[in-house]
Design a protein around this nucleic acid. Structure first.
Length: 450
RNA sequence: AGAGAGGUGGCAGAGUGGUCGAAUGCGACGGUUUCGAAAACCGUUAUACCGGCAACGGUAUCGGGGGUUCGAAUCCCCCCUUCUCUACCA
């Protein structure tokens, strides 16, 4: 139940019971809110979503109103359509007077359909705004809890290195070896936009290539997506409207700089019905990521710990509902294999309800041990969104029997560079340089920094 | 950025105000035929929402949004996008 280090360990895949069967029906779609209200409320409570009961009640009220309006609108429209045909017939046969008589009725109907349509649009809009506010429901295995301290440590791997008394944190190491320059970034752009120099720049490129190669070998197709996205894409993966302020926005063209490759990669499949034989979708891509992260400064964000721009390789899967939790396990295993090859001590956390992301049903965080800082750094987050994103994206497939159904979307960082670099620098420092793990030597073209 | 031409179902491609969710062809699926297959023939072939246990019925959708009209794929306006030429660039 509690942390257990597994120093010898090949990655052991977490066993997950078949909750997927059940939870795949808990998408935040209206039908589920209607039919399984209690379960939705319980899930929202676990997610620590305070206004759940009020929001759900409001949504259901609006829903009832919406359906009434729809029915009334449709039947009036049906009658009007019939009359329009009759009028056409009368006109042809030259019965102008008869046509005029019918027009009186169509005028009434038109007034009715117009006001019903207007109200319908208003009600629908209010309802959708409320729906967008609701977070995803947590998977049954998600632990109860409010914050980071309540996350469950699934396992730990690797021995923490013993550093000497003069070990330096990475922000001193990068100065010592002149490989990353924050001041220069401030001059060019601002805080949080470092300049990577010489071996530092080459290490970045090496890591990106290493991660992409590993992902490709694991069956992911490499993609190079745009790093600016439109509003619809932001809504599709759930960054909008929830996290509007965290993205850089170009007002002139109404485009957003991506906070993660998840956004463009997953939106490839927006409004798609994917043929079953193409499933599961497995794609990967490297992009810079941009985060405004306003208002968080201090010791925890020194150096490479938190940046406005950083590089990341992302892996994305889209699967049939029954497969998604098995897919999440393979993604976590893949990420672990990267950390093992980089010889970094790490641990896997299962996030508690209160600490999980807005759109996620189950999230594993992977943290590496940063020896000189003496703390764990999050380097990856792998999540199953079940149908939450798919519902917004309208990403579907034809299930057996020809029924169109929502797919499950998943993603994970594999990996984000800055904190990996921080841990590599700190953990591998020696008196005469930083000894890089063997797997990177050929990628870098050198084995030691300094 | 300027000028011009386009955007119709899985694809190709008709359709310029009336019974058009949309001809035709191809593809796909089901059936007849066949020992089997091909060919031929017959049929089916979208999505969303509403009502219904269901069968089914209704509404909407011809790039997106708005408008004119009793009635719009067809007319008008705005936006997106593709192509060609010019301009600019990598």
């Amino acid at each position: 139940m509690r942390p257990r280090s597994r120093p010898e360990g090949a990655a052991r895949v977490v066993f997950l019971p078949t909750f997927a069967r059940i939870t795949s029906r808990f998408m935040l779609q209206l039908s589920v809110l209607r039919d399984q209200t209690d379960l939705v409320l319980a899930g929202l409570a676990k997610k620590r979503y305070a206004t759940g009961p009020a929001d759900v009640a409001a949504i259901l009220d609006l829903d009832q109103r919406r359906r009434q309006l729809q029915t009334s609108h449709d039947s009036a429209q049906a009658e009007a359509n019939k009359l329009a045909q009759q009028i056409g017939g009368l006109m042809k046969s030259g019965d102008k007077a008869g046509a005029e008589t019918l027009k009186i009725r169509t005028a009434e109907l038109k007034q009715h359909t117009q006001s019903a349509a207007a109200e319908l649009a208003q009600v629908g809009k209010e309802q959708q705004q409320l729906l967008y506010k609701l977070p995803n429901l947590p998977h049954a295995s998600v632990p109860e809890g409010r914050a980071a301290a309540d996350n469950e440590v699934v396992r730990e791997h690797g021995a923490k290195p013993e550093l000497g008394p003069d070990a330096l944190p990475h922000w001193d190491l990068i100065k010592k070896y002149d490989i990353i320059d924050f001041e220069l970034g401030v001059k060019i752009t601002g805080a949080g936009f470092p300049v990577y120099k010489g071996q530092g720049a080459r290490l970045q490129r090496a890591l990106i290539n290493f991660f992409l190669d590993e992902a490709r070998n694991a069956g992911y197709t490499e993609m190079q997506p745009p790093i600016l996205v439109n509003e619809a894409s932001g809504y599709g993966t759930g960054q909008l409207p929830d996290k509007e302020g965290q993205m850089y926005h170009d007002a002139k063209d109404d485009l957003y700089l991506i906070p993660t490759a998840e956004v463009p990669l997953t939106n490839i499949y927006r409004d798609e019905i994917i043929p079953v034989e193409k499933l599961p979708v497995r794609i990967t891509g490297h992009t810079p990521c941009f985060r405004r992260e306003a208002g968080s400064w201090g010791a925890d964000v020194r150096g490479l710990n938190r940046l406005h721009q950083f590089d990341k390789v992302e892996i994305v899967q889209i699967t049939e509902p029954e497969q998604s939790y098995a897919a999440l396990d393979t993604m976590v295993a893949h990420i672990e294999s990267l950390l093992q090859k980089l010889e970094l001590p790490y641990r896997v956390l299962r996030l508690c309800g209160g600490d999980m992301g807005f759109t996620s049903a189950l999230t594993y965080d992977l943290e590496v041990w940063s020896a000189a800082q003496g703390r764990w750094l999050e380097v990856s987050s792998a999540s199953n969104f079940e149908t939450y994103q798919a519902n917004r994206l309208k990403c579907r497939y034809k299930a057996e029997g020809g029924k169109t159904q929502l797919l499950h979307t998943l993603n994970g960082s594999a990996l984000a560079l800055p904190r990996i670099v921080a841990a590599l620098l700190e953990n591998n420092q020696t008196a005469d340089g930083i000894e890089l793990p063997a797997v990177l030597h050929s990628y870098c073209g050198f084995s030691k920094i300094g």
